[in-house]
Each structure stands twice: as C-alpha cells, then as structure tokens.
Design a protein around this nucleic acid. Structure first.
Lengths: 172, 172
DNA sequence: TGCAATGTGGACTGAATCGGTCCAGATTAC
DNA sequence: GTAATCTGGACCGATTCAGTCCACATTGCA
C-alpha cells in the first residue's frame, strides 16, 4: 500500500520513453507500443502531463509529444506531483488555510511532525531526475546516500499482499 | 494524493492516545470518544493493530487496549506498515520473487532507483516514534535534519485540490 | 482543397477499494 | 449470573480508479 496510482506509474514510464527520444517527438501510439501502456490510457496520461507543462505537444499529422525540458531538470517529485497531486501523506499541511481548519489545532502536536515527513518524502523524490532513471540502477546513488541507511530498529516485514502488478513494477 | 488511508490515520491518532495512557489500558469507547474516531471504526482499527502486535488487549469487563511496547520503541514505519501494508510506491521491489516476474527485467533500469526511494521513505517514517508524536512539534527535529533540506530546483506547487479532511489533518 | 494522421477535451462505465456499520459469540470482573 | 468488553467476520453504500470511447480541432501532404 501507500502506492502511487497506476496512472502515475504509466506517466513515469512514458516520460522515461520520451526522454530516450532526446528532443524528437513521439506519437502516443509509438509510446504506448514501446511501453505496453494501453493506448487510451497513455493518451489520458499524456494529456495530464501536457497540462502540467511537463511535455509539449505537436498537433496534426507528424505530431506527437516531447519533453518540455531536458530530462536532467525534470525531477521525480514534479512528475508525481503533476499526476498525483501534492505529495502528502495526510491532508494536514496540504491546505494550511483550509476551509475546514483544525478544530483541535491548539491541543494537537502531530502536525509539525507530519509536515517534516512529507517534506522528507518530497525531497527523496526531488533528488532523482528523469535522466537518473535512464542510467543503470546504481547500487547506492550519491544523491540518496544518507537517506537509505537504517538507524532505527528494523520493523518486522509486513505481511506480503499478493496483488496486481504495476507497469513500473513490471518493467523495472 | 499519495495518501495514507483514513484507517491508518485513525490508527495513528488512536495509538497516540494510547501512548498518553502510559501503561494503563483504555477501552475502545474511551479511545473513540477522546479522538472522535467513530466507535466501530476505532474498533476495527484496534483489531488490526492487535493482530500486528502493536497493542495488547484485555478482554472482559474492565478490559481494554494498551501499547504492546513503550512508545519510544514504536516507530511510525511500523504503524504505517501494519495498517497499510508494505511501504512501497510501486509494486516493484515489494515482492522480488513475485509470481509475475518482470518480463523486461533485463532492459529495465528503473527498479534500483525505486527501491532506494522506497527505502528513503521508510527511513523517514522509521526515524519518528510514537513518543516523538507526543512531544510538541519541533521546528526541525534532529532526526530529520538533513532530510528536509532542499538540494534540487524547487518544483512548482501542484494545484491544490480542496478535498476531505483526515483525522490527523483535523487534529494535527 | 480534401484527406489522413494526430492531439484535445470530456463523458462514460465496470470493477475495486474504502469507510463505516452491525452482529453473534467469547472472555472476564464483579 | 450478569454486564462490560474484546473478537471475528459479514455486509453495504459511496467513492475512486482504470480503462474506453467519441466528437472535434489541428496539421501535413497529395
């Protein structure tokens, strides 16, 4: 659990494929075929990426999609945010000025902690770029050194729940 | 998005309340009343926590729930794992020996990266204990220093999606 | 000029999940 | 024996999600 949606999964795979094109445009059909993402879904995701400004489109014959910026400047955090909304485990801290303010704000002391956790997750995602995903998976990429080092008692592995596969899962 | 489920949210609030009892047991009714979690839902979540071994129960009259271990040794990662399943943004890396192995494993280079990201998130959650949540929210707790420091270009804030509230959100 | 290829925006549907509720039964204190 | 409490499971309605489809706009090319 605590998963990204499948669409976000698709989005990352499609962006990775686009990054391989290096400036060229690719049609939705091409991208779908190469990534095995169902065509209509690929189309849907690409529309979302377009609205988020992460890709540019060329309409008409010989049209297609291309990256809006170099792969080296597109962070995973941006991708996930664009497709999934703000990265935040709880509502708390997302809309600080919500229409539904915290009625027990004065007595609750959890908020600050969550904000930092959300921040940490966002940072972990922000450290990797699309370009990084193209490179061979490193044993321990410099950017994550210091994050992945256990410093607390290991918690027992949660029961594995056999479930559906994700594209990222399947292809990664 | 990228949210915990509401049940996990409840679980954290309930555990926090249990931690305040400091060894005493609390009935489901008490816990629900204090946290404003709907009683049946609180009951459901507590059952789950019991099976995960995070709380102990005393049946019968004068029964109730108590923490299975001191709050200082219960990490948030444990809590989330217990209620939400393995912490992993993608299927990939959760069941490495899945019945559905990656057909394109040889060409895919994303897996290693995801594994590290999942690890980073898990670490961020593992650094905080239940006891930490009881303390006043710090500006920047020592345990997270170094995680929350931006090192990449800030990505534009994703469009705020006004939505429902979470318990943690409401009370934090 | 017209046609074919392609993206655009939106509606729609079936399935799965989630939040929430309820109940019959076991256990314990008094 | 009775009341209070946890236990395990079934159940339901609402929501979300993945996926599909369609009418239309745009563009390149014959």
């Amino acid at each position: 659990m605590l998963r990204m949606s499948k669409m976000t999964d698709y989005g990352i795979v499609l962006m990775t494929e686009l990054a391989r094109a290096e400036g060229d445009t690719r049609t939705t059909r091409e991208l779908a075929a190469r990534t095995r993402v169902p065509l209509p879904s690929a189309s849907k995701v690409l529309k979302g990426l377009l609205q988020a400004g992460l890709v540019v489109s060329q309409r008409g014959a010989n049209g297609g999609y291309g990256l809006a910026r170099p792969a080296t400047s597109l962070s995973l955090a941006e991708l996930v945010s664009a497709l999934e909304g703000p990265v935040s485990l709880t509502e708390c801290g997302v809309h600080a000025t919500s229409a539904m303010p915290c009625e027990l704000e004065s007595v609750c002391q959890v908020r600050g902690h969550w904000r930092l956790i959300n921040q940490a997750i966002q940072e972990a995602l922000g450290r990797l770029t699309l370009a990084d995903l193209l490179a061979p998976a490193p044993r321990m990429p410099e950017r994550l050194v210091g994050l992945g080092v256990p410093s607390r008692p290991q918690h027992p592995a949660a029961p594995p729940n056999a479930s559906s596969t994700s594209v990222t899962g399947v292809r990664s």
